[in-house]
Simulated scan of single mutants.
Amino acid sequence: RPKRSTNFVNTTNEYQESDLFHPDCYFVCPEDEKTSISIDNIRALKNDCLYKTSLKGKGKVGILYPAELMQPKAADSLLKFLEEPPDETLLILITESIHKLPKTIISRMQIHNIKIPSIEETISWLKNEDTGRDWQKIIALFGSSPLLINELGYEFLTEKIKKISIDLDSLVLKKSKPSEIAANWTKEDLDTMLKILYVWISSLITVSLVKEIDEVKYVPSSFKKFIGVKLNYELCFNYLNEIANIR
């Protein structure tokens, strides 16, 4: 099968089918429809890559992402490898929550903090990849994540933003029932939809607390009616917590 041209992958299968694939590099992440990295995933990493002879003769590389999603038994299995790693082997753990990793693993790793690119750097890079686009709204929602934004694509993201904006306006104006919106969203990319909703609710909380109107310039028009209105913060944070749990 031809390799898929990409600069960002989410699953092991995507990696193996992309032009990023290298026979001496093994990528580990939660399997499809799974939310954690199991001990079987770590065993496969060790047996299929780290403990094998390099096919290209230049060492072996294992990558875990997100590393904080390792199950306890998976972390224990990885720890045994870290205690006596073979020569010419590099193991990379990528995490946005290092405090969630076991201290025994952290103590055996070198830590490199990678700075998130600025908004200006993100816009500049995206314009080099795809000129003539207005990336401001997308970056406001998805943050400075140029690889992810570029992989999902401008058309896909703007379509989802428009879709959720129309649905929420309809809901706030009582033109649609919550059950109808929920039924429609089951047919969509739910994680992306919930990500947008999470950011919009966070923006409403921010503008209510610090009175920065710019924070809500990209929210649906119906949301702007809540600017200046005292919010039920407990309810808003409960919404955010529920969204985070679902995602």
Results as ranks from 00 to 15, higher is better:
Arg43Ile: 03
Pro72Cys: 03
Gln16Lys: 15
Asp19Phe: 04
Lys34Arg: 07
Glu96Lys: 12
Pro102Lys: 02
Ile92Glu: 00
Ser202Arg: 14
Asp48Val: 02
Leu126Ala: 02
Lys162Asp: 14
Asp24Thr: 12
Gly57Arg: 13
Met193Gln: 14
Leu101Ala: 05
Glu155Asp: 15
Gly62Ala: 00
Leu231Pro: 04
Ser202Trp: 10
Asn13Val: 12
Ser144Asn: 15
Ile39Cys: 07
Leu141Lys: 07
Asp24Glu: 13
Gly132Met: 04
Tyr198Thr: 13
Leu78Tyr: 03
Ile123Gln: 11
Glu155Leu: 09
Thr131Trp: 05
Phe8Thr: 02
Lys127Ile: 09
Glu215Cys: 11
Cys49Val: 12
Lys73Trp: 01
Phe226Glu: 11
Lys224Tyr: 10
Lys46Phe: 06
Thr186Lys: 15
Thr158Trp: 07
Ser202Gly: 06
Ala140Gly: 12
Ile39His: 05
Tyr65Pro: 03
Ile98Cys: 02
Leu55Ile: 10
Lys187Thr: 06
Cys25His: 09
Lys58Glu: 13
Lys60Asn: 10
Leu152Met: 11
Ile213Gln: 12
His99Lys: 09
Ala244Pro: 01
Ile246Thr: 15
Glu14Phe: 10
Ile213Cys: 04
Met109Arg: 02
Val229Asp: 05
Ser38Thr: 15
Tyr15Glu: 13
Ile98Asp: 01
Trp185Glu: 01
Lys137Trp: 01
Thr158Ile: 13
Thr186Met: 14
Lys73Tyr: 06
Leu204Ile: 11
Gln16Thr: 11
Arg133Asp: 03
Phe27Ile: 02
Trp135Gly: 03
Ser176Arg: 09
Leu55His: 14
Gly143Cys: 05
Leu126Met: 12
Thr11Phe: 09
Ile37Cys: 13
Glu121Lys: 15
Asn184His: 14
Asn47Gly: 10
Lys187Pro: 05
Ser38Phe: 08
Cys29Gln: 04
Lys127Met: 14
Ala140His: 15
Pro117Ser: 10
Ser5Arg: 13
Thr206Lys: 12
Val216Cys: 08
Ile149Val: 11
Pro72Met: 01
Thr89Tyr: 00
Ser77Leu: 08
Cys236Ala: 15
Val61Ala: 04
Val9Ala: 13
Gln110His: 06
Lys175Tyr: 04
Phe27Val: 08
Pro30Ile: 08
Asn113Phe: 08
Ile139Trp: 03
Cys25Phe: 14
Trp200Pro: 01
Ser203Met: 08
Ile119Pro: 03
Thr122Phe: 07
Tyr154Cys: 02
Thr131Met: 04
Asn113Trp: 03
Tyr233Met: 14
Val219Gly: 06
Ser222Ile: 07
Ile37Met: 09
Val207Asn: 00
Pro102Asp: 07
Thr11Tyr: 07
Leu78Glu: 05
Ile106Asp: 09
Thr186Gln: 15
Ser221His: 10
Gln16Ser: 10
Leu152Gln: 13
Val216Leu: 05
Ile105Gln: 01
Ile201Gln: 08
Ile123Met: 09
Ile39Ser: 07
Lys177Trp: 03
Cys236Met: 15
Thr206Asp: 10
Leu171Met: 02
Ala244Gly: 01
Leu204Cys: 10
Lys224Gly: 09
Ala182Leu: 12
Thr158Asp: 06
Leu126Glu: 02
Asn7Cys: 07
Ala67Arg: 00
Glu215His: 07
